[in-house]
Design a binder for these strands. Structure first.
Lengths: 232, 232
DNA sequence: ATGACACTTTGATCCAGATCAATGTGGAAC
DNA sequence: GTTCCACATTGATCTGGATCAAAGTGTCAT
């Protein structure tokens, strides 16, 4: 896709209602775009905060703790908006899970322009609050849940974000590797694999190939995830 | 303090530059205030998102996983702004660590009014992004750090937020209990206690009474926390 | 199709931190 | 001051998930 097309994707996703022409053109002036191949890390947290729109593809945001110790802080899919913070206590890297097209802005410039357009900034705030809520949920899982609960939780959450319903199941295409899932849940590859086998044996999920999942019993998964919905 | 005084605290903290009179009076119209005694839980996540300003005192935001399993998602101090989400996967409760005075708004109303005043909403967004950054740091700690690293990390972070320098140390008054600290770091009280003893023995900290801490060697603490600053 | 390699699964052992148990101790109330 | 009790510390043991090791298996390039 060309830059104007990508910017238009961004406009449609974030400002469905439309915005003043001047705001849009100022934004367009500071916007940049880039494409990334699977495995690329187009953004390494450096001096400046970045705001990134995923026009296509999917990414993971990784914090580097030490060599070999990584925490996946979030996954993002087409249409998501990501804030990559400048390096503070840890270095963050945005990494492409598959080929991606990205529109990005330095956060300072973006906010400066957004000030002109309350409608826009409210949208950004709403998305930031949603990211915050998801990050808190992750903290709960990492701090107080067992490996089994984390896996169930992960599957249910991913189903809500990128799953689709079929005849008798919720289908899910999980493009990230078992290692990525482990790094996201604070577990090792081996534990992830064992928990998936456990769920398969219990008849709650089926997998075909490396990335296709069928969730056969969402209710039980919710219950294993320790979600409130289950208690009700 | 009276309601007008509290609202003025809010105004000064969030809108130091001033705002239009109409925005302020609309906000004032939907603002409510409440005081909470130590241990009170003035906000239990219910149907609506709430935005809460801590005019005085300090609080913890707790997620309830199951009976006896709690995760402290964040601590807040005077001047902080908290967003308490409606119950989704887990129930959240804001709980007073000491006597508090709080100004609060239903998030819907607040955002509706804030749309009139881009300056205001930018401030809120900046704070939301800071909360998000802190929540991500917490996820990193919970997912990939040892008990010792978590404690060092916690002390350094708290020092930055509410510590003050004295002759030869950074002083810190930690009003929360060891249990709260454990619930925040995904550890048990016993492990927290053992790690503090370890830091005491290493000569990195001194404690007097239950809540007063003196950090004698911030550099070493950073290093034990696995922070980048340490590597430099 | 076939080969090759990276990813995944399964199994055996180990250890950091949980759990269980007992002893100290700060600080509020009298 | 003295008493009391919730909170904090220290010690002994146990366990979920990590680590180490080996055997499948999907997918891509040829």
């Amino acid at each position: 896709m060309t830059f104007p097309d990508l910017f238009d994707e961004f406009r449609k996703a974030i400002l469905p209602g439309g915005a003043s022409g001047t705001t849009l053109s100022s934004l367009k002036a500071v916007a940049r775009y880039t494409s990334a191949r699977e495995g690329d890390a187009p953004f390494k947290g450096n001096g400046v905060d970045q705001i990134i729109f995923i026009a296509s593809g999917s990414t993971k945001l990784v914090a580097h703790v030490s060599q070999g110790r990584e925490q996946v802080v979030a996954f993002h899919f087409k249409g998501d908006l990501v804030s990559v913070p400048a390096t503070v206590a840890h270095a963050y890297t945005l990494c492409a899970l598959e080929d991606c097209e990205l529109v990005f802005f330095p956060a300072d410039d973006f906010l400066q322009i957004a000030k002109q357009e309350a409608q826009l900034i409210v949208k950004i705030l709403e998305r930031a609050l949603r990211s915050l809520a998801r990050s808190r949920e992750k903290a709960v899982a990492l701090g107080r849940k067992t490996a089994g609960e984390r896996l169930a939780s992960f599957l249910v959450t991913m189903a809500e974000r990128i799953g689709w319903s079929s005849e008798d199941a919720v289908e899910l295409e999980l493009i990230m590797s078992r290692r990525d899932i482990g790094d996201s849940l604070g577990l090792t590859v081996e534990t992830v694999s064992r928990q998936l086998s456990e769920l398969r044996n219990a008849g709650l999920i089926e997998t075909s190939g490396r990335s296709h999942f069928r969730l056969l019993d969402i209710e039980s998964l919710h219950s294993r995830a320790g979600h409130l919905k289950a208690a009700a």
